[in-house]
Write a protein that binds this DNA or RNA. Structure first.
Lengths: 176, 176
DNA sequence: GTGGGTGCAAAGTGTTTGCAAGTGT
DNA sequence: ACACTTGCAAACACTTTGCACCCAC
């Protein structure tokens, strides 16, 4: 395993090498193909951003992505992050989510689980994902009955930790 | 039926009279009670806004609410609309919705159908509502199994009109 | 009369964009 | 070389807020 700093300063040729040894290489490689197919260029800044996105398990905001990307390449600017996010969502590998906050969240796990839904803890803002074939089936049925064909769906559940009620505080209170 | 202009210029005492003859009086009266319970005042501007909200069947934006309210009382300002909206959502009678646009939508039908969900046509932006006890039950079950207690939920389905596919165009294409 | 409410305009906040300089191919 | 990209800072769009005046109670 290379020193992360070194890895990030490396040129593209050695970079792919690292990529192919990563867990999430699949989604990342798909995105690199997407970029290539569109005739776009692989700049150092984009690489830093892309790697951050596909190395992350959590949902993140534009600001967090900027911060994390800068740890890898200090030259990444806010503008580039905001210009790269639409590419990510356009590729279908990252999903933009709106929880009614003033900023958007981005979900890098979308590629693997295109129909997953979210539970957001009101107390700690922890986000948990789930999938349900039964619900999907019902949604599809209802949508069809109303004269539409379902394109995509999202469920957002706002909830409280059971822990909070029992213990008076939430274990994850400061996890965000 | 009074001339709308006159009705809106009337003082509070005669105003309630009109209210009680309205279809949506129930939600509106609940909100007036909510305001009173909080010890807030009933200004002409608030009345114009409140009446607009509870007379409306459609989903609306802050800007639309301002425009409509101004038709009733030209002195209503944008600031007052934005200061009144939190009261409306806080009362539980209006629901704030985020469809990922830069502005929020507000749903005045929330009081009557607190768990309704939305299907948005990708082509014409028409919004259709639906409810499903089965889905609610499943959601509640899943949420509980994951260690949370469900507070609220929302489903957004993006779909295409079946008509569009069959006829090549959507009847509602220009309805928004 | 008084404390909450209002309009106005300025400030905020997350996001987008014009432009000149930089860089991957 | 050329066209795509970038960083910077100004611009944007929606929303919030400070302040002096106003008005419902």
């Amino acid at each position: 395993m290379l020193d992360p700093k070194v890895r990030w300063l490396a040129k593209w040729s050695s970079y792919t090498l690292v990529v192919s040894s990563e867990d999430r290489k699949s989604a990342k490689e798909k995105f690199l193909e997407f970029i290539e197919a569109k005739g776009l260029r692989l700049t150092m800044q984009r690489m830093a951003i892309i790697d951050t996105v596909f190395r992350t398990e959590e949902h993140f905001t534009a600001e967090q992505l900027l911060e994390w990307s800068r740890e890898k390449d200090h030259s990444v600017s806010r503008a580039t992050v905001y210009r790269t996010l639409p590419l990510l969502t356009e590729s279908g590998l990252v999903r933009e989510m709106d929880f009614g906050k003033d900023y958007k969240f981005y979900d890098p796990n979308y590629a693997d689980h295109p129909n997953h839904n979210h539970i957001i803890c009101q107390d700690c803002e922890r986000i948990v994902e789930f999938e349900s074939e039964k619900i999907e089936q019902l949604e599809d049925e209802i949508t069809h009955n109303l004269g539409f064909s379902l394109k995509s769906q999202r469920i957002q559940i706002t909830a409280n930790c059971e822990e909070l009620k029992k213990l008076g505080s939430c274990r994850n209170k400061d996890c965000h």
